[in-house]
Design a protein around this nucleic acid. Sequence first.
DNA 1: TCCCTTGAATAGTGGCACTATCCAAGCATG
DNA 2: CATGCTTGGATAGTGCCACTATTCAAGGGA
Lengths: 211, 211
Amino acid sequence: MRLAELSERSGVSTATIKYYLREGLLQPGRRVSATQAEYGEDHLRRLRLVRALIQIGGVPVAAAREVIAAAEDESLDHYLRLGAATRALPCPEEPAEDDPAVETARRSVEALLEQLGWSSGPGLDMLNPAHRRLIDSVAALARLGYPCDTAHLLPYGQLAVQLAVTDLDMVEEQPTPTGQIEAAVALTVLYEPVLLSLRRMAHAEEAARRF
Amino acid sequence: MRLAELSERSGVSTATIKYYLREGLLQPGRRVSATQAEYGEDHLRRLRLVRALIQIGGVPVAAAREVIAAAEDESLDHYLRLGAATRALPCPEEPAEDDPAVETARRSVEALLEQLGWSSGPGLDMLNPAHRRLIDSVAALARLGYPCDTAHLLPYGQLAVQLAVTDLDMVEEQPTPTGQIEAAVALTVLYEPVLLSLRRMAHAEEAARRF
DNA sequence: TCCCTTGAATAGTGGCACTATCCAAGCATG
DNA sequence: CATGCTTGGATAGTGCCACTATTCAAGGGA
């Protein structure tokens, strides 16, 4: 199909598609003449994924490019690609304040990981952006005077384990390796708003029940 | 204390504090002369809250103002203020595409709420931005071909209920009504990154276990 | 006295995600 | 074949957002 049709079927303007092509989020189409290119169903599928990551998941364009690149890096094996793709996902990172609260938070988190039985290799922690973000968030809560020690975090950690099991079950439903990578990325990102929305709705529900 | 001290103790630049003052995120200090103002501990506390909402929680400045305004609206009673404050929190809203997927998603969500026993008053749904976001996210997942029906959503909803119970327990620990409102806002927003980080880390852990 | 700080007002910056404009090369139609 | 529209590529511009820098006059401290 032509650019115009790709645009129409995806609901993304041609200008934006061109932008994504420039940014490397989308493979260029098969050139059919000096001034025209042909796109296929896989382009459409990819475009929909990119669009969902950016619009629903709030993933920045640059990060989406990294994810896409990692997902189709043929030089890695399946598991490494999966890890690379998910690690490329953004954890909106703040410039770490050198606060005593951060050190306390780091210890709380370390203790939490131990209680959860998570194998936190000493180098792996710091490489994982999620780990940094967790520490920063806990530190912010502590700075405001809210309890956020290991005991408080533990139930959240246990719930996270349940979530991960459910999520990976869905990933393993995918038949092809590429499909699994894509599913891992899409489900990781797109279930985040689902989860947060449900939590907020549950807050409202529970608050109404209590008052 | 003076502006400079407020800045030093909070770690926020004077320029940014002035910006927050202009934007109404912070009450002006008690004027002590034509060119100087005095700030108290409550200013510091408020500033830290605002900062955490914006930096850690990713709340836009405008939304933070709404939240603050609702939290201290004396004309509402405790429960209404709590609702108003949390409802002012942003759910990064997308321009709703008029897709058949959205209609399907809406039905899935409706069925989910019923199974969870949530009292979704017919008007309340649409007012709640979280509800819209949930539908949009489910629609995006469906558009990509991932299963996201009521059966798949139910475990997430049940987990959300557990989260809400834990969260509201923490809110109720606060002795004063104002403290409860503040806690509700802070915990709603600041536990989101905690939860998402833990989920991603659990993904990595569970993936390592399986492969 | 002199200079530094303070607070207010205003304008400017940088990043991001597009979006608008231009251009030359086709293709399609009469 | 002429003509006008569409296509893809390149470049520059837009709008928003969260700050940030500048300028100014009035205080206050050594």
